[in-house]
Design a protein around this nucleic acid. Structure first.
Lengths: 192, 192
DNA sequence: CTAAAACGATAACATAAGATAAGAAAAATG
DNA sequence: CATTTTTCTTATCTTATGTTATCGTTTTAG
């Protein structure tokens, strides 16, 4: 039942059954209908999700407008990470883009495990490093590439499923441009 | 001698003397002349620095041009973090902007400490989380703010010393704009 | 100290992106 | 299945940014 979660964790670190069994009692299945939220702007979030089915996005608000900056698909973790770490109100909302099935557990439980087990403490570090690497790569793209180059990177890269599964105006947000501009870029690129 | 380093570490986690003494034998003082490098593009880097005096920048290369994306000042760590973690060649070079005095130690030693001591393991996590939070904030700024807004944030924020101490064309890179555009923004902002 | 290099402001021009609106196509909803 | 609603494209207009070049000024380096 929870094997896909265990597999994903073990891509970072191998778990003894004892370590794994420290977590299992706190896991629960949560189903989200399309448009339901896993985290909400202004509210501290303590939930860590793991996507079994469906997809989600997270967005910030700027002048009343939603700015989508990330997507979550099957077999990936989804959480308002900064809010979990800092215990501050979440700056972002996480919304189901389709009906979803998640495994969910509280981040505070995770933090307890960090103190109880060197294995989990190390996993906590590896996850943070993984997130930092992803953010660094993306930030460099934003600083060094033009919107068109970022679009081309996106469709070339392994993130192809984003294009296929997500409305384009969300992707435009993700690339830091307007939907209109993204449409023009697509037109321009298609002609080459 | 190394007390400022210990103080900075203890802003994340309190260290027993035993923990601290695991690290001390591996510390060394390194002086860099202006323009000397702590890390170099294409070469795997294993050095973690802590700035006692001076300042540094790091830059990527795009089409033969240097793109400066970060600065390091006194009492902060400086390292090609991604290269240390991944053991892959560094994508960036770290250059002294002035004569510098650093405390330096090898990241591999640090990784040994992670395995030897729960305290250091936890510190490794906290540092990675700290870096992730900083990257997230900056990325959101790049995605949601205009160049002018980013400039205003920079001069309003606690990063004021960047403006005062660093050549403007480096700051333009940092903000993701050209030096010419930054000069125009400065002109525009001054008139308001 | 002097020549060279780096730096910052500014101008002129070309280009791309933002804002807005309109309309067609697609998807969601009841 | 019919009607909203959402999504995407296209067009127009405006504006900000990029590009390139010039020109003092400051800083650097020999």
């Amino acid at each position: 039942m929870y094997s896909s979660l265990r597999n994903s964790i073990e891509r970072f670190i191998s778990l003894s059954d004892d370590d794994w069994n420290l977590l299992v009692p706190h896991l629960e299945i949560r189903k989200l209908k399309k448009h339901e939220l896993l985290a909400e702007i202004g509210k501290a979030s303590n939930d860590v999700g793991f996507v079994l089915e469906g997809m989600l996005r997270h967005y910030y608000l700027k002048d009343g407008e939603e700015k989508t900056t990330y997507f979550y698909f099957e077999n990936h973790f989804v959480t308002s990470y900064i809010s979990c770490i800092t215990k501050q109100p979440s700056q972002l909302s996480i919304e189901a883009l389709s009906d979803c099935v998640l495994i969910v557990f509280p981040y505070t439980i995770f933090q307890d495990l960090f103190e109880k087990s060197m294995t989990w403490q190390k996993f906590g570090r590896l996850i943070a490093e993984y997130i930092a690497i992803g953010l660094e790569e993306r930030m460099v793209g934003l600083l060094m590439l033009s919107p068109e180059e970022r679009y081309l990177e996106l469709i070339k890269g392994n993130k192809i499923k984003i294009i296929e599964r997500v409305p384009q105006h969300y992707i435009a947000n993700y690339l830091g441009i307007t939907p209109v501009s993204m449409s023009r870029i697509r037109n321009r690129v298609a002609k080459k």
